[in-house]
């Protein structure tokens, strides 16, 4: 391949299938009012899959000997319950299900990275779609949607749990009352950094992972198997760890929002 072909190949893999929300046409150039159809559709399918499977297990819950699927779900739920109860001591019924969904959804969406990079775009091309990015977590819209949700919850719990104490905390911690401007600045930075760190860490990892798969796919066909295999095996680790980190940080941030300093 020539360098121009190479860059167009990479470019091709970095473009979203977009819907212009002002004209309702597939295409580009709608500024903010564009919907990344690939991210949205894959996100929706994975969400429905998770919701459906979990609901199926919940309805067919056996208190006796569990089946195989129920076992898997129970392991996940007990793992999340353990992680949550370790660091979070509030009474909210939201944290545990939220953590479960964050872990499972991110894990499932990350896993789509292991599908051969050209397979889904080729199939999409058969249906007339020019681009199709399979991995929603490699789209900052996806990761920011989650981290902003978590951020909103952090703010919500800070305000509802701490009440007026929050004001005192912002002014006094961590340097004492006389350095209150610095305290306010520190607190703002600390809080603002949370959604960015959550979203960009996941996005960066998945985007880089996908890019490396694309680069490997540009190698001559006979030399792809080894680096592709090695990277895929390593990527299994990244997929799991990133889902786990997002979940654990969510729990940590939310319990920090509950605990008074």
């Amino acid at each position: 391949m020539t360098p121009a072909q190479n860059s167009s190949y990479i470019q091709h893999h970095l473009e979203h299938l977009q819907l212009n929300l002002s004209t309702w046409h597939i295409g580009t150039g709608g500024g903010f009012w564009m919907l990344n159809l690939d991210t949205f559709i894959v996100g929706l399918i994975t969400a429905l899959l998770i919701g459906g499977v979990l609901r199926y297990v919940a309805v067919h819950m056996q208190t006796g000997v569990p089946g195989r699927l129920q076992n898997v779900v129970e392991v996940a739920i007990e793992f999340i319950q353990g992680s949550v109860s370790e660091s979070y001591h509030g009474k909210s019924q939201l944290i545990a299900p939220l953590s479960l969904i964050i872990f499972l959804w991110i894990f499932l969406m990350n896993t789509l990275d292991l599908i051969p990079v050209d397979l889904v775009p080729m199939v999409a091309q058969l249906f007339g779609a020019e681009h199709f990015k399979v991995v929603p977590t490699a789209d900052p819209n996806m990761t920011f949607a989650m981290s902003i949700s978590v951020f909103i919850l952090i703010l919500f719990y800070n305000v509802t749990i701490k009440g007026w104490y929050l004001g005192k905390e912002i002014l006094v911690a961590p340097f004492g009352p006389y350095l209150f401007p610095l305290n306010i600045l520190f607190r703002l930075l600390e809080e603002m950094v949370k959604p960015f760190s959550l979203a960009l860490r996941l996005f960066g990892n998945m985007f880089a992972g996908e890019l490396i798969f694309v680069l490997i796919a540009m190698l001559p066909w006979w030399s792809q198997a080894l680096p592709g295999g090695i990277w895929a095996i390593f990527h299994i680790l990244i997929i799991t760890i990133q889902a786990f980190i997002f979940m654990m940080l969510t729990i940590a941030y939310l319990s920090m929002a509950h605990d008074k300093h």
Binding site: W33, T39, F40, Q93, M142
Partner: peptide
């Protein structure tokens, strides 16, 4: 690779999924 309305779509999907799970 820019932030666009997809953010809202994913926010809503996420919120519904979490609410349903809860």
């Amino acid at each position: 690779m820019e932030i666009n309305a997809t953010l809202f779509g994913q926010l809503i999907t996420f919120a519904i999924l979490v609410w349903f799970t809860m």
